[in-house]
Design a protein around this nucleic acid. Structure first.
Length: 467
RNA sequence: GCGAAUGUGGUGAAGUGGUUAACACGCCAGAUUGUGGCUCUGGUAUGCGUGGGUUCGAUCCCCACUAUUCGCCCCA
């Protein structure tokens, strides 16, 4: 049997419906923030990532899918979204062609040659945002608020936002030196990996899991103590704006992020649901003011984040959140004889063109099996064709819930279905409650949220009433 | 790159060195000669991941490989 590549997944069935729903929410959220969708190639010249992400990160040095194409060019399957987008920003001269700042979002697959485990695949899907051309602390705060609001929209509860500041290049370099000085005499007390990190990327020692409880780490100098005045003021501004945007956060002085391009604000959003594996970062990002220049463009500030969709859906599952996903069919058309089937083909076509979600029988099963099939598909209405009725230009429609059955003429059918299906309020997906009440449930399906009381709210309170 | 666990049908899952590999669900058909979701009856495996080995004989013992899952590194 031929199997899928290691660390990849086939997404289908109800799983695929969740993905589509989440992506739909992302699109509608980004529309409100006025970000534009961008799609860049799934592979780029290797240089894009080597220069962009930095040689000290493992992602670039040992986790990329590299290949040489037939023209002997070195190519790399993108391991993340930012570098490619910055390349595109420069190449398309968006700094001149688009209104500034340029606000872009993407959603696509990334590739990393790693050992798969819970929450980590070789092919992963990320949604992310890049805001280029603004150094205003408000843009940092707003970017952080995007995933926070997405999770809120989806009903996720157990998330924690962590922020920190690395300061500008000056502060960061100074801190790096201080840190090396501090750790140097303690080298043999640290774990093997940390000794490796010391020379490669000393900042990463801070979030070592092995040594995290040792006094050496606890007493290590903090980034925030080495920010210069300007960076400090900037970070305070970011925090102010976060409060204004009602984003709850905590400051984690050990948060440093792995990619070289970050400076000033860095952040992570973690899942804290019971049962989540150790890879619990749902989204992460930060400011990367030198990156555009590094990749050959004009000096341009930028902020962004990336959000792993696989992990997000895992979190939704673990919090047992039921997404409002359509799992049913409006009309199921049954036919057995050849003339019935012929008639069914035409009928199904016209019902679909009239906007109904219609299924019919394809395998030549008996009527009994067709009833079973209709139930499996959660059909709301059944149309049962038989030759006798058809001779009178009539057909039978059965409400699959009440079991009421009517004999109608074809002319009347569309009118009837229109009436009857529109009555089902829960039948249309309304993706968000529009009210602005503070304790709005936002369509959450959990018990903790109070309902805002709006008519068009589809939270669990109303669902119960409807049932 | 390192470490651990697992690998039996469409699914879940028992099981034993020795004729026909439990059970449950699902699916298909019939009882019900075109109106069902209950019930009953019957049907439903390239033979237990792949390749070697031990043995008179292995799905069950040994080895290698592979796949999946989980952890480390790293990362969303």
């Amino acid at each position: 049997m031929i199997t899928k590549p290691k660390g990849c997944h086939d997404i289908y069935g109800s799983e695929a419906k969740k993905w589509q729903y989440v992506i739909k929410m992302i699109d509608s959220l980004m529309e409100k923030y006025n970000y534009e969708f961008i799609r860049t190639p799934i592979f780029e010249s290797s240089e894009v990532f080597h220069r962009g992400m930095g040689e000290s990160s493992d992602v670039v040095t040992k986790e990329t899918y590299d290949f040489v194409d037939r023209g002997e060019r070195n190519m790399t399957l993108r391991p993340e979204g930012t570098a490619g987008i910055v390349r595109s920003y420069i190449e398309n001269k968006m700094y001149g062609n688009m209104s500034s700042p340029v606000k872009l979002y993407y959603n696509g697959t990334m590739y990393r040659y790693e050992r798969p485990q819970s929450g980590r695949d070789r092919e992963l899907t990320q949604f992310g945002v890049e805001l280029l051309g603004s150094d205003d602390p408000l843009s940092d705060a707003e970017v952080i608020s995007i995933p926070v609001n997405l999770y809120k929209m989806l009903g996720l509860q157990e998330v924690k936002v962590k922020i920190n500041s690395l300061g500008d290049a000056e502060s960061r370099n100074k801190y790096r030196e201080v840190l090396k000085e501090y750790f140097h005499p303690h080298l043999d007390e640290l774990c093997e990996d940390c000794r490796e990190r010391f020379s490669k990327n000393p900042l990463r020692i801070l979030d070592c899991k092995v040594d995290k409880d040792s006094d050496i780490l606890k007493n290590a100098p903090k980034t925030l103590d080495y920010l210069n005045e300007e960076s400090k003021i900037r970070f305070d501004k970011v925090k102010e704006y976060l409060q204004a945007l009602e984003v709850d956060y905590e400051i984690d002085p050990k948060l440093v992020r792995g990619l070289d391009y970050y400076n000033h604000t860095v952040f992570e959003i973690e899942a804290h649901v019971e049962g989540f594996g150790s890879n619990n970062v749902l989204a992460a990002g930060g400011r990367y003011n030198g990156l555009v220049e590094l990749l050959g463009g004009p000096s341009t500030p930028g902020v962004g984040f990336a959000c792993g969709l696989g992990r997000l859906i895992m979190a939704l599952d673990l919090e047992d959140i039921k997404l409002p996903i359509k799992e049913d069919v409006e009309v199921f058309v049954m036919a057995v004889s050849d003339t019935e089937k012929n008639y069914a083909a035409t009928l199904v076509q016209s019902l679909r063109m009239s906007g109904f979600r219609v299924e019919t029988e394809y395998t030549g099963r008996g009527l009994k099996a067709q009833f079973r099939q209709a139930d499996r598909l959660n059909a709301k209405y059944l149309i049962i064709l038989n030759d006798e009725d058809l001779a009178h230009n009539e057909l039978k429609v059965k409400n699959n819930k009440t079991k009421e059955e009517l004999t109608l003429t074809l002319d009347y059918l569309l009118y009837y279905l229109d009436e009857v299906l529109l009555e089902d309020e829960d039948y249309t997906i309304d993706d968000s409650c529009e009210c602005s009440s503070d304790d709005c449930c936002g369509n959450h399906h959990d018990e903790e949220h109070e309902c805002c009381g709006k008519e068009d709210c589809h939270c669990h309170h109303h669902e119960e009433e409807e049932e």
